[in-house]
Design a protein around this nucleic acid. Structure first.
Lengths: 215, 215
DNA sequence: ACCTGAACACCGTTCAAGT
DNA sequence: ACCTGAACACCGTTCAAGT
């Protein structure tokens, strides 16, 4: 079982979600396709378990973070840890935190985030919404990166900056009257860093939360 | 071409993303599989065009919204319109706003949102981040709903409240020492409304933005 | 210019049969 | 208890052939 999940994660890490096929997995394990069905009920179950498997490591990282005096600072650190985990494994993308309903590492991560909000002067409803919002910001920003990059970026023949630059070029060619905003921010888009973008969005949510909590 | 996209959207609306197969689409159009390839380069292209097709309607709705005196109020109204569009068509889910790079309705919606930030006292970088954050909140909250609901909810034999109630029950059974946050918010989770949750998260981002803009 | 549909190389899943 | 692998019912994509 452990070997099945390790092999599944390895396939996902190497070539993304589309690389995880039962045949490829069986080949890597040196067995037949059918035998995998003894361990998992199907492909969805396999993916769920693979996700839970890697979230175990993320949970350990989050638990190991020393808590500061400021719950909101702690929430920031945790959210960044979650974001970085998705950057490392883009295939987590949208599936991340999808299974809060069943007991597992998703739920434990949810609890870790939520525990910080217990230190804030909020109603339970406000806490529920605050944690959902933070998870939403992480997932919303990371989902963009979950999509497999175009082949010319993946194989390194064109780097990311050049790739962004091409689109920036196209944006600059747009009519200035019709697209005033796009023109206003095109220089920021050109060569932008996804993590910085995420951090800025997170900061807005945390600022709103701090205001709400009067902290 | 128009007929192809209309039929594709109909399939997606009726039974979700998995229902859009080239064979099903060809059958509905009364043609052969191969003929679809004359209009689109492949399945990904088909999905992209179907998304752009429905975003046309969303764009019209957004453009029709009268602007108020407060740019942040206008951003809220627009974000809600986007969210509602995804609620109506869960298959838009994560793909929503995925193609800002190519000129199309995604880019125009992006421009519409961004135009409101031009009325705020912000730097271009802050505007770029603000719009990304709002799109992130919409996508992050809507992505949760994009996953197909379990069959017993879909066929109506179990309603959503009962479904949530079951998980709430399981949560209440968890150890109180180990899961203090989950216990704190379980009554809020039970029977919660996804839209309310989204609105609360959006409000935090908008509050942070208002603070940043000094408005 | 537009359509056809058989053919190809894949999938996930099942299941009788093995050890 | 665990594994095998052929078989089934699907996919997306291609392409020689038609009109």
């Amino acid at each position: 079982m452990e070997a099945v999940l390790t092999a599944a994660v390895a396939l996902l890490d190497e070539a993304g979600e589309s690389a995880l096929t039962l045949r490829a997995l069986a080949a890597r394990l040196g067995t037949g396709v059918g035998s995998i069905y003894w361990y998992v009920s199907g492909k969805d179950d396999l993916l769920d378990r693979a996700i839970d498997h890697v979230l175990g490591g993320v949970l350990t990282a989050v638990e190991g973070q020393t808590t500061s005096g400021d719950p909101i600072d702690d929430l920031r650190v945790m959210a960044v840890t979650l974001f970085d985990a998705i950057v490392d494994r883009p295939w987590l993308g949208a599936h991340f935190m999808q299974d809060i309903d069943v007991p597992g590492n998703s739920l434990r991560l949810y609890e870790e985030l939520g525990r910080q909000t217990l230190r804030l002067d909020l109603t339970p409803r406000q806490r529920f919404h605050a944690v959902s919002a933070i998870v939403g910001v992480v997932v919303g920003n990371a989902a963009d990166m979950g999509q497999e990059p175009p082949p010319e970026v993946l194989d390194g023949s064109v780097d990311r900056d050049e790739f962004l630059g091409r689109y920036a070029e196209a944006w600059r060619a747009l009519d200035a009257e019709e697209f005033p905003f796009v023109h206003d921010i095109v220089d920021e888009f050109d060569g932008h860093d996804d993590k910085e973008q995420f951090l800025a969005g997170l900061e807005l949510t945390l600022a709103g939360l701090r205001l709400q909590a009067g902290a």
